[in-house]
Design a protein around this nucleic acid. Sequence first.
DNA 1: CGCGTCGTTGAAGCCGCTCAATAGATGTGG
DNA 2: CCACATCTATTGAGCGGCTTCAACGACGCG
Lengths: 253, 253
Amino acid sequence: MQIYQTKCGDSPFKELDLHKIEVSCASCSLSELCLPRGMGPEALEKLGNIIKRSAPIQRGEMLYRAGEEFKGLYAVRSGLFKAFVTADDGEEQIVGFFLPGEMLGLDAVETQVHVCSAVALETSSYCAVPFTKLSEVCKEIPELQNQLFRIMSRELSSENQMLLTLGKKNSEEKVATFLLTTSTRFHKLGYSANEFKLTMSRQEIGNYLGITFETVSRVFSRLQRNGIIKVNRKVINITDMVALKNLVSGCAG
Amino acid sequence: MQIYQTKCGDSPFKELDLHKIEVSCASCSLSELCLPRGMGPEALEKLGNIIKRSAPIQRGEMLYRAGEEFKGLYAVRSGLFKAFVTADDGEEQIVGFFLPGEMLGLDAVETQVHVCSAVALETSSYCAVPFTKLSEVCKEIPELQNQLFRIMSRELSSENQMLLTLGKKNSEEKVATFLLTTSTRFHKLGYSANEFKLTMSRQEIGNYLGITFETVSRVFSRLQRNGIIKVNRKVINITDMVALKNLVSGCAG
DNA sequence: CGCGTCGTTGAAGCCGCTCAATAGATGTGG
DNA sequence: CCACATCTATTGAGCGGCTTCAACGACGCG
């Protein structure tokens, strides 16, 4: 069953394709995690009218690059994305991994220019949400406005936790925090909390956590020796969740 | 000239004092930096009707604590605040310093519970903005809704830059970034970009930057030896702005 | 003046980084 | 199906930047 739209041109913001109604927000399995949360049917239709689903995109394809004009938000439908800022010397800092139901591009609303870049880490799909239109619809649907406030607030909150992780934790605590957070997020999507595949590379995990990939690898090995996890390439198995949580002295997220 | 309200009880959210009209948003010198930015006179009055100015509060007084119920946002009117998250082991991570015109509490919108705590670092004053009412007024004044989106977006953007600073920079770059950012923010408030007083302690600067206060002190001394800044207790003088900027390899903010 | 807090500076140690070698996985073409 | 190249991951050895621990000086405040 093909649930994705057919090819829709270079930019999903260029024009709206009315065929998408068949795959509107109302029928989306992620609606309770995403923008539509808590909205009624007529509101859902209004929202669906401005949103455009993408065809699947490949690993390495970019949603947007730093410096590009901001056109709208992106809601992850399937797959995995990373967002990163680039320093003047070209060095990158990954600021987040984005799972289905999560929203990308919120940080560009103020400047109207993307300061991050976003790229797919595996074959993925998304919904494009033109921000001007979204903000129009928000006037008519207060519940949507509030949901957008909540989404931005949640992002702020999780970034605050990340500042704590980067600023105060050692490498073991960082990795443990990352594993726990990832486990929780997968679980909320209906997947196992104990076994999951880390699509991103060790390099990307390390970059995100402010440590080198060698250190990530060493901590994984140590946690495995201590019987807390089992590592099989990209597949992680949490065998002692309690011990893992004990390693995380300070992650409220 | 006393421009502050008289004492207004324990919680500024408890009841509205109509006397405050004389110090409404319309007459506030910060209106172009704060919530009212870009709003017309009638919108300003609506906004002013739900906002309550605080009396001055002393150094050490708290706006809110982690775990408390979220009632609304706080806009800094004068002075300086810090916000921090607390780890399970009691360790704190400062997630931001807040100058006049800036907004506190945005990260609690989703959970309706504060995850950060906020405290005044010097005698300060603020405006309390009940969030439920604010969100009501947003329905009537689209420009206010958009301004709130922008403010949250800006906060996200600056936290992304902070993740880069914490994750990728060495201590010298961190301190240089902090000095530059602080300089820029003071300048936007109409103060000198080259000379300013750091009200926060070395301890707090180090906490914010993920380094120890001894390291902050050492970097200050080194920058002074190199003729880039002059340090006199809490007063910083940037004597070579170009050199300082060159130290910051990767701060786009 | 005495006390506590804050800031500076020095000395030593450690955690994570750098550099390097190796193995395993993946992909490609013959 | 295998040879080969490439990329990722693991592990080790040594180094260095930052932390830790400690002493001392400068203020501010009672």
